Simulated assay, not measured.
Amino acid sequence: MTKTMKILRPAVMCFLAMTVVCGIIYTAAVTGIAQLLFPNQANGSIITITLKDGTQKDYGSALIAQKFTGAQYMIGRPMGTTNLSPVSKEQKKLVQERIDWLHSLDPDNTADIPMDLVTKSGSGVDPNITPEAAEYQVARIARERGMNEDDVRAIISKYTTGRFLGIFGEPAVNVLKVNLALDGLL
């Protein structure tokens, strides 16, 4: 065995051992535990609906936002990420553009726009909005769909989750589920 081989052998053996432990054993263990304890989340929390003809269609993940822009739909948070300072001119411009867009979508609504409808979430793909942001949109959705506002609120309430264990987090409304329910698919 040459001197170079003596030097490289421990490095190669360590590399192979770590590849097996971290790349195979750890990954298999975490995947197996996730499938066992949280199968829906581990598989993407896909919302699958059986249509009238018996076929099934995937509509998206309950954990990842989808963009809705029609006045008949509940609008979620702006999508995408940003590293802008909350007090930067660029951020203020983006927020004002979103405010203007929401006012053009519902010109009769003079209520204050909840912050989560005009600012992006940390992940940029938050599927939820606050109950206040959902309530802000009730009259527009009811008007556009020819529904009673209380019926829209009932759908929103059905897809609102409370705090985890009653103390962690904030109540949240899943935008995709509400819109699917409004379309009569859930």
Rank of each mutant, 00 (worst) to 15 (best):
M1T: 04
K3G: 02
K3W: 06
T4K: 04
K6Y: 13
I7V: 10
L8N: 05
L8A: 14
L8D: 04
L8F: 14
V12R: 09
V12M: 15
C14P: 01
F15S: 11
M18D: 07
M18Q: 07
M18E: 05
C22A: 14
I24R: 10
I24M: 12
I25H: 08
Y26A: 07
T27E: 05
A29Y: 07
V30G: 02
I33Y: 14
Q35D: 14
Q35N: 15
L36Y: 10
F38H: 03
A42E: 07
G44Q: 00
S45Y: 00
I46T: 00
I47K: 04
I47E: 04
T48M: 03
I49F: 03
I49T: 13
I49N: 12
L51T: 07
D53E: 09
G54I: 14
K57C: 09
Y59S: 03
S61K: 00
L63G: 00
I64Y: 02
K67A: 11
K67H: 12
F68G: 08
T69Y: 00
Y73G: 06
M79T: 06
N83H: 03
L84V: 01
S85M: 14
S85D: 11
P86A: 12
P86V: 07
S88C: 09
K89I: 07
K92T: 07
K93H: 08
R98D: 11
I99V: 15
D100S: 13
L102D: 11
L102Y: 13
D108G: 15
N109Y: 12
T110W: 02
T110G: 02
I113R: 09
P114A: 15
M115A: 15
M115W: 10
K120R: 08
G122S: 12
S123V: 12
G124S: 09
V125S: 09
P127M: 03
N128E: 06
I129H: 05
I129Y: 02
E132S: 09
A134D: 01
E135Q: 00
E135H: 00
Q137E: 04
Q137S: 06
A139W: 01
R140D: 05
R140I: 10
R143S: 14
R143H: 01
E144M: 14
R145A: 08
E149Y: 02
D151M: 13
A154T: 14
A154I: 13
A154F: 10
Y159M: 06
Y159G: 01
Y159F: 12
T161V: 11
G162V: 03
R163L: 03
L165Y: 11
I167S: 02
E170Y: 07
A172E: 11
V173C: 00
N174A: 00
V175S: 00
L176E: 06
K177G: 04
K177W: 05
L182Q: 13
L185D: 07
